[in-house]
């Protein structure tokens, strides 16, 4: 009912991790917020607190955000120990204060992982994800070199499953939620998306080996199959893709070990 949704307010305290720089010591600081609308989004509450801090001459809380509709993957808080907060299948920016109770102390921390070094307050550097994609998360097709789109039929089931995997927004919640700070779900999503499609087949083995090697080199942890990642994922991407990644990786490793390789990889005569 509309009535239940109007003019309802609550008071909460944000206990926010403040850290001026990677080298500086960090600590929790409490920011009470009284009588705020339950319809306010969680990030809007930080906006409001930041405006207050600014006027008081204090430094506002640095936090990552952009689209505020759950698709860009920029927002990245851990709220009460849960990446992206209490909701299921949503990002921090889609969290509304009505998910909390009056009087709650809400602990807000940055995503924590060695591969995501802290920048400031709640902001971390997730460039490691870009580096993993750069290592192989693509199909090598030059612009203009593509055949007609319908020349490559894709079974609907494969296309749908690839889309499930492709929904990843690269936010890093999987890493933040994993007790091992593993990036397996992120890597699995991309490897599966491209591995499910015919377009991804020529580079399939190379892709999975390169992306996993890069992931390991960047200092992410290993998967111990607890599936906290998929539970925290704002796009609810299934950890089934991790099994698929493992399978692909094993097969690719075996093939890489035994497949004969041409001695000449160069082009034609000059």
């Amino acid at each position: 009912m509309v009535a239940a949704n109007t003019a309802k307010t609550l008071s909460v305290t944000l206990r926010v991790w403040r850290q001026a720089s990677p080298a500086a010591p960090g600590r929790f600081v409490d920011y009470p917020a009284a009588n705020v609308s339950t319809n306010m989004s969680f990030l809007e509450l930080i906006d409001v607190i930041n405006d207050r801090l600014t006027v008081q001459g204090e430094e506002p809380i640095a936090f990552a955000h952009d689209c505020r509709e759950g698709i860009c993957g920029t927002c990245s808080c851990t709220i009460n120990g849960k990446a992206h907060g209490p909701g299921h299948g949503i990002a921090t920016c889609q969290t509304y204060l009505r998910s909390f109770k009056d009087g709650d102390i809400i602990v807000v921390e940055p995503f924590r992982a060695r591969a995501f070094p802290l920048v400031k307050d709640l902001v971390v550097d997730r460039a490691a994800f870009d580096q993993i994609i750069q290592a192989g998360g693509f199909v090598s097709v030059r612009t203009g070199a593509a055949p007609d789109a319908n020349a490559i039929p894709v079974p609907k089931a494969a296309a749908d499953l690839a889309m499930d995997a492709a929904a990843c927004i690269g936010c890093g919640a999987c890493v933040a939620a994993c007790k091992n700070a593993s990036a397996m779900l992120f890597v699995a999503a991309k490897v599966s998306q491209l591995g499910l499609l015919p377009q991804g087949q020529p580079e399939r083995d190379q892709r999975v080996l390169a992306m996993v090697a890069k992931m390991d080199a960047l200092g992410f942890g290993s998967c111990t199959n607890q599936y906290e990642c998929s539970a925290a994922c704002p796009k609810a991407i299934s950890h089934d893709f991790i099994a698929r990644l493992n399978r692909d990786y094993l097969q690719a490793s075996v093939r890489a070990a035994f497949q004969p390789v041409s001695a000449s990889t160069g082009g034609g005569a000059g």
Binding site: V139, G144, P147, I152, M163, L194
Partner: peptide
């Protein structure tokens, strides 16, 4: 054509 070749689902 280009996007399909890239693996856009």
């Amino acid at each position: 054509d280009q996007c399909v070749a890239q693996g856009v689902p």
